[in-house]
Design a protein around this nucleic acid. Structure first.
Lengths: 338, 338
DNA sequence: ACAGTAATCCAAAACGTTTTGGAAGTCAAT
DNA sequence: ATTGACTTCCAAAACGTTTTGGATTACTGT
């Protein structure tokens, strides 16, 4: 049988109100009665019905995250973020509601459902577009949210890593290794972080006195397969690049496979670099030179910020920008070349 | 402002009852009125308040999973399972409530909270113990659940892989490669799958006429570090093993590092194998010979089964046992030895 | 003895939905 | 005109909480 406040009320001979207030710790109930109520509640194994509580009190101790089925699940980057968010949510006693988007459903719909159905107190949004309708929606709905990433309009709290600096460091490293023909495998242009990483690439080249060339640019979709295809296109020209920088690790891993299948050796004949430092990258063959985003920690900090937004506390810092770290491994070559 | 049934009721001049029934698709409302109601609902962007709905109707379209913080998050195996469950949940229109267990909190408490607070319709339980209090609890509470794994008492629906056959295949492979001194790094004894894998190990040895020896057994905690330590212990004896089988991939990866740091080469001087085939294993150095558990698919199928339990439909199969597949890579040696 | 205060309790409303058990109206058959 | 069968609608109850706005009692100082 279900144990409710009513059960305890009957058992104790006190009103439902008093039972509720006793358990909630209000000070207008006698310490002795509280003891009695608490002990009955424990004996019966009372657990409040959260649906009822939420209906009444308007907050749910739950934060939400939407997962577009196409890519995010099984994407190690996203999983790491999820871990961080989940970990920190537990710290605050919050649960995490994952709504994988229903197949074929408009993504924005999933957001609408989540927000308007009032099952969550706030949302974490990741991998945003330059013009992101989800953010527009959340802003309009005045629903608490936190973003991993920056877009064009930045009037919302976010946490991000400096992709420009990261990619600049990659290119600087490559030029120091003697490379001059450095190609870039771009992420989709509509993604918010693409322009920052591209800008860093250009800056890195110019700092070494190199003009970027159209023929050393290729576009991928973030997946390993797309990195593979892009690398093949880049290599298939009269003066192919001697280094390939990819905008994320998955594409870099695909690119390495492409390089190897062309009979070249990564790290000796050609350098390959990534961005993200997802766990597999350290164990790739050869280990991948990349830019570390502390994704797990970002998840945790994002949740910290979200809680502040939910509680309407002023944010310590509403725009957090982390400096990424260049991680040099073998894929970019162990010895100077050329 | 919040759009509720009342809003639509006032807007349309119809009762709340009729609005509710119209939107729910009952056939006791005129088609014309339904059109009107639906169009108003759409215009206003009505989204039902799920807390209220759940309070009244007793089911939540949500399944739950508890994640012990200590190990599971950031455990690739568990993440894969999560992906499968999440993916399939979306297929049925279910959401996924993740409750990471609070640090220091009794795990069973988290289950109690989840179940009794009536926020979920069913649970997925993974990595169970031989005697698992969570299962006892769920059975007693008569709350729908599905288990990945088998324990001693099997009177509940589960899906599992045949760990005995898997480990037998590993040992058979190793003996065929000429190994006679084959060590085993055990998972914790209280875990349900440990005994099956151990049994397979013994069977595999006996099939090749080898008696298992106490000195070739070590125990780990599933983590890479524990595998590392266990391997060092195994190697530090007068006649060390020539092959080390680990009960999961993480420990195998740790063991490989230990072997390498002892100046030996994995795959040539000594063979190492794992169990699970988590994604990093294919890219390990050298790539790890292991037993593939289709964890993602298991997650999906587990959810299929859970939905059936929730709907009180008879299960197609209440005990599913999958055959795992031996994946031979370089860590077990490419050429016959000895 | 009396007002004033503090301590302790509670009835009832509210949250937004679904469901129950009709009511009202229409129409056709008698 | 009455009956029965349909169709279409709705008032009210229920789900289990929290909160509001007192009510009751006991104690204090005068």
């Amino acid at each position: 049988m279900k144990i409710t406040l009513k059960t305890i009320s009957e058992e104790s001979g006190l009103s439902i109100t008093t039972v509720s207030r006793a358990l909630a710790g209000y000070d207008d109930v006698n310490e002795e009665t509280r003891q009695k109520i608490v002990s009955i509640a424990e004996r019966l194994g009372y657990q409040p019905n959260l649906a009822a509580r939420h209906l009444r009190s308007k907050h749910t101790q739950t934060v939400g995250m939407v997962i577009p089925l196409t890519s995010y699940f099984s994407d190690p980057f996203f999983m790491e973020l999820l871990s961080g968010v989940g970990r920190q949510a537990a710290e605050y006693g919050y649960d995490l509601l994952l709504s994988a988007q229903q197949p074929g459903e408009d993504e924005l719909n999933t957001y609408r459902r989540m927000v308007a159905s009032s099952r969550i107190d706030g949302m974490v949004v990741a991998r945003i577009l330059k013009e992101d309708p989800r953010i527009t929606f959340l802003k309009e709905a005045r629903h608490p949210f936190i973003v991993f990433g920056r877009s064009n309009a930045n009037d919302y709290p976010y946490i991000d890593v400096d992709g420009e600096a990261g990619m600049r460091a990659v290119v600087q490293h490559l030029t120091e290794m003697g490379h001059r023909r450095i190609a870039l495998i771009l992420s989709p242009r509509e993604l918010a972080f693409t322009s920052a990483r591209y800008a860093g690439y250009v800056q890195g080249l110019r700092a070494a006195g190199i003009e970027p060339e159209e023929t050393y640019l290729a576009e991928g979709t973030l997946s390993a397969d797309s990195g593979h295809a892009a690398a093949l296109r880049l290599l298939d020209q009269t003066t192919p690049p001697t280094a390939i920088a990819a905008c994320n690790d998955m594409m870099a891993i695909g690119a390495m496979q492409a390089v190897q299948s062309s009979g070249l050796e990564v790290g000796r004949d050609i350098a390959v670099t990534g961005f993200d430092d997802i766990p597999p990258s350290a164990h790739a063959h050869p280990p991948l030179t990349t830019v570390r985003q502390p994704t797990y920690l970002i998840g945790r900090q994002a949740l910290d910020m979200l809680i502040q937004v939910i509680r309407q506390e002023p944010l310590d810092q509403s725009h957090v920008l982390l400096m990424p770290e260049l991680v040099i491994r073998e894929s970019s070559g162990t010895n100077r070349r050329r």
